[in-house]
C-alpha cells in the first residue's frame, strides 16, 4: 500500500493492522517523551485547500511525533490565490522532495488524481476530498468505538452505530459506512430524505428517517455537522425544525443504552445537531476522538512511510 485514498481500499486485515499499530502509538502519546525517531529525515506536506483545524493539526502532531519534517501549505495566502493549479503546486512540492502529501481539497477525487498522476512520487493521503471520503476520520472513529465498546481488541462485530444528519454532503459518513461495515458493525443512517444521497440504498447500511426509533437500538451515535457552506439549496425548512427532528438533546440521550457513546467528527454546531449538554456529557467522546486521531495518523504515516519503498504492503497483508 502506498497511498491511503479511500476506506474501500482497506481490507479487513489491513484495517485491524492500522488499529493495532495505532494502539501502540497511543502509548507513546501517553508517555513522558512524546517523540520517536522513526521518520527522521522524511518530509511530509500538509496540502490543505480547505479550512481545517483538527485534521491539519492532528496530521502535523502525528508527523512531528515521528520526527518527520512538516511543511504546512494552505491555499489561503499561497500562489493558489493567484490561480496556480493543483498540478503546478504538486510539481513544486515534488521538486522540494516531499515523501508524503496529505491532501484536503474541495473537489471529490482530488486525492485520486494526485496519486495516479506522475506529479508526485510520494505517498498521497486523502484528508478529505469534497463530499467523497475522509478515510483517517473513519479509522479514528473505529479506533474510538473499539476502545470504548470492545475493550480495544478485535473488530466491531455486534455493534450498531447510528450516523445522523447531513449524509448527503458528508465524506465522514461515506468513509465510516465502508470502514465500519468492513469491521463487521451494523450502520444505520438517520437523516431527512432531502439529506440522503442518490443511490444510498446500495450502501452497506440501513436507512431510517426516525431518530427517536433508532436511538434505543444503537451502541454509538455519530452526529454529523450540518454543512451550511455546501448547501446551495433548501434541504430543511428551518434550523429549529431540523434540531427538533434530528438534533441530539438530553431527552433523546435518556432513551439510549447506558453504555452507549456520543461521537461527532467536529466542528460542532452547538444547538443545531447537538445540544451543549450532550456534547459535554460524560458519554460524549468527542474530545477523545481528537486525541485518538493523532495515534491513528501516526500509525498510517508509519505504515505508509517507514518501510523500504519497493516492498509495498509487506506488513499489511
Amino acid at each position: 500500500m502506498r497511498h491511503l485514498l479511500s476506506a474501500a481500499d482497506l481490507s479487513y486485515a489491513q484495517t485491524l493492522s492500522i488499529l493495532d499499530t495505532a494502539q501502540e502509538m497511543a502509548r507513546v502519546s501517553e508517555g513522558p517523551v512524546k517523540k520517536l525517531p522513526t521518520l527522521r529525515g522524511r518530509t511530509i506536506v500538509n496540502l490543505f485547500y480547505e479550512d481545517s483545524t483538527r485534521t491539519r493539526i492532528s496530521f502535523e502532531a502525528a508527523a512531528k511525533r515521528l520526527s518527520a519534517d512538516v511543511i504546512n501549505f494552505s491555499a489561503k495566502g499561497s500562489s493558489v490565490s493567484k490561480g496556480e493549479s493543483l498540478k503546478d503546486t504538486a510539481l513544486t512540492l515534488q521538486a522540494m522532495g516531499a515523501d508524503a502529501v496529505i491532501l484536503r481539497h474541495s473537489a471529490s477525487g482530488a486525492a485520486h488524481r494526485l496519486a495516479e498522476s506522475q506529479w508526485t512520487s510520494g505517498s498521497v493521503i486523502n484528508a478529505g476530498d469534497g463530499t467523497h471520503e475522509h478515510p483517517t476520520q473513519a479509522l479514528l472513529d473505529a479506533f474510538t468505538l473499539r476502545k470504548h465498546l470492545k475493550a480495544g481488541v478485535g473488530d466491531l462485530r455486534g455493534l450498531a452505530v447510528a450516523i445522523v444528519g447531513d449524509i448527503l454532503h458528508s465524506r465522514v459518513a461515506r468513509s465510516n459506512v465502508i470502514l465500519l461495515s468492513t469491521l463487521g458493525a451494523q450502520v444505520i443512517l438517520v437523516a431527512p430524505p432531502t439529506l440522503l444521497p442518490l443511490g444510498v440504498e446500495t450502501w452497506p447500511a440501513q436507512i431510517s428517517y426516525d431518530l427517536d426509533a433508532t436511538l434505543p437500538l444503537v451502541d454509538a451515535v455519530m452526529m454529523l455537522r450540518v454543512q451550511q457552506e455546501r448547501m446551495e439549496d433548501f434541504f430543511f425548512p428551518t434550523a429549529r425544525e431540523y434540531s427538533h427532528y434530528y438534533g441530539l438533546n438530553n431527552h433523546r440521550l435518556t432513551t439510549m443504552k447506558n453504555s452507549s457513546i456520543i461521537m461527532h467528527p467536529g466542528p460542532m454546531n452547538r444547538g443545531l445537531e447537538i445540544t451543549a449538554e450532550c456534547a459535554d456529557s460524560a458519554r460524549s467522546v468527542i474530545v477523545e476522538q481528537v486525541a485518538n486521531g493523532v495515534s491513528v495518523r501516526m500509525a498510517v504515516l508509519y505504515l505508509l512511510l517507514a518501510g523500504s519503498q519497493d516492498e509495498d504492503g509487506v506488513l499489511i497483508s
Partner: peptide, 17 residues
C-alpha cells in the same frame, strides 16, 4: 520504532511494550 534499518527492510508489525 527506534531501529536504524527501517528504511532498508520491509515493515515490521509493532509489539506491545
Amino acid at each position: 520504532l527506534h531501529r536504524d534499518d527501517l528504511r532498508m527492510k520491509p515493515l515490521r508489525p509493532l509489539v506491545p511494550t
